[in-house]
Design a binder for these strands. Sequence first.
DNA 1: CTGAAAGCGCTTACAG
DNA 2: CTGAAAGCGCTTACAG
Lengths: 345, 345
Amino acid sequence: MAVTIKDVARVAQVSPSTVSRVIADNPRISEETKRRVREAMDELGYHPNFQARSLVVKSTKTIGIIMPNSATQVLENPFFPEVLRGISLIARENRFGIYLSTGATQEEIFEEVIQMVQGRRVDGIILLYSKTDDKIMKYLLDEDFPFTVIGRPFHNAERITYVDNDNIYATKQVTKYLIDKGYKKIAFIGVNTEDVFTIDRMEGYKQAMEEAGIPIKEDYVIHEKWLKENEKEAIIDYFFSKELPTAIVLTDDFLAIKLMSIAEDLSIRVPEDISLVSFNNIMLCQYMRPPLSSVDINIFQLGLEAANCLLDKINHPETLPKRITIPAKMIERKTCAKIIKEQNE
Amino acid sequence: MAVTIKDVARVAQVSPSTVSRVIADNPRISEETKRRVREAMDELGYHPNFQARSLVVKSTKTIGIIMPNSATQVLENPFFPEVLRGISLIARENRFGIYLSTGATQEEIFEEVIQMVQGRRVDGIILLYSKTDDKIMKYLLDEDFPFTVIGRPFHNAERITYVDNDNIYATKQVTKYLIDKGYKKIAFIGVNTEDVFTIDRMEGYKQAMEEAGIPIKEDYVIHEKWLKENEKEAIIDYFFSKELPTAIVLTDDFLAIKLMSIAEDLSIRVPEDISLVSFNNIMLCQYMRPPLSSVDINIFQLGLEAANCLLDKINHPETLPKRITIPAKMIERKTCAKIIKEQNE
DNA sequence: CTGAAAGCGCTTACAG
DNA sequence: CTGAAAGCGCTTACAG
């Protein structure tokens, strides 16, 4: 059986209370007995039992991380490991552990969240995504449980601490960049009604277009599913059924990479025939040919700050909700042509 | 404060013991009182406290996952999310939670492992990697703590349950495939002395070459670092300082993708001038141009089986160590030329 | 400076 | 079929 505080007490010839106090390095214990107790601990190979400690101090020193549902392939995206790396850094520095959700559907995940908070498995939660329709945030808010979200909450944002890029602004800038080069036939690929960040990015695209006085063609705003789920043939048909855009803003590098491969098959040249800018700046962007221009959203930083905010909330429950904005920066590579001049039809 | 078993007992007019028994669905409790207790639980919104339960039953219902150290960029690799998806599936089915390591260095990770097992934070551990030099496995073995590894343990393999591909065999097949096409100047990129799987893959390469009677040129066996860490210029120099291989086996898709981009810059054509096969078959392979031939190692399955084995070990501590081999299968795409005939120099 | 006692929220023999 | 009691391994007032 594992060695407990009692065993140590016996060997060190003190009471269990005293052993507990030297673990906490209580200043009221004499150096002499601290030494003796520590010796005993080493001798026996004592390690405190976490469960027991948690039970009495009512803190688990672990943070729960809710991933997007693993049934989809969102996880193929390097976003996830990178954000985890940021969170890990802070967790480790503060000696917190990480407890991960495993649910495959929204419903399962919701159940897990309830388990985590009611079962006192974690001290706080980081939501790795923000959906337009999600019971979790509301639940957490109602329970007044510490949490933080990566992305902009669709509801109750003013009551929630979250960290996000300014997606509207960033996409506006990117679109402007294209407009300034002279493009007018600019499409936007990758909205979906569930993910708030895609909605924000679309909004930024629209604002830039409007400010430039370029009318937005409805079939230039394209749902993420269209590129993700369609067979190559369907996409090709689409491309040839209407006037091709000359530049495209995409919400995700993966979409851009898929599109580039299709373009190549169709002998549509990037950037000569069509310019591309996407988001996330995954490592692979630089290895594409041509190398892909992409907005670096600082995923690591997103995770790091989310963890920081959460710990802050856990340690100071009264801190007010706040928003942290992580800068995003376009990395120019070779998928956008130089200045061109385009007629508006 | 959270509602406890006592609160439920009071409302349902039974003893706490009885409430505990209806939670466990003990058959000795009458349906009538079960109903009453459950009503009380619903009414109060009762959820069992996990810490307390763990403490007495001495089981945490959570498995620890040890990731490779997050200081490096290994995590950029989609291997990780995918293996996690497999583990999650099994964990969830068995109502186990997942506790994740956060360490950035080998030493930190080792400390964490000790915490996990001594602090009774987890019931068992899955090691996501196998290194040639690693104290963790030895420690776990000495402690007789349930664990499972993904990859082949370099030491004590006969005493450890692990799941792996047959990397030697798989690489041998791939190399043979190239040899059968008529290649002789075949290089191997991506060994490193730390990761057992790269050593196994190199071994397979060597065996195939030897069996075909093709002498192995030393500078055709190339360390992973060479491609990962060098600047483009250094790599270019290297390529032109010696006779170019006509085919290359790479241990990882990322290496292949990087190499393809460099080749394109040098106007070395794939597959006309140089054929390529790599490992992992990440989603992006199909979007490369030309689409990259790669060995599908079934990452999801690797995770799933590792979790299965671990649960088996947790539930039946006496089960003997075993090895599970997950099949690997080369997905032929367009990076290997058709039959050619090559002179051996 | 240190110890005895109570308690965190559960489970599980033991008894009836 | 159900309850009282002891205990899991800790921490922390309270007392001295």
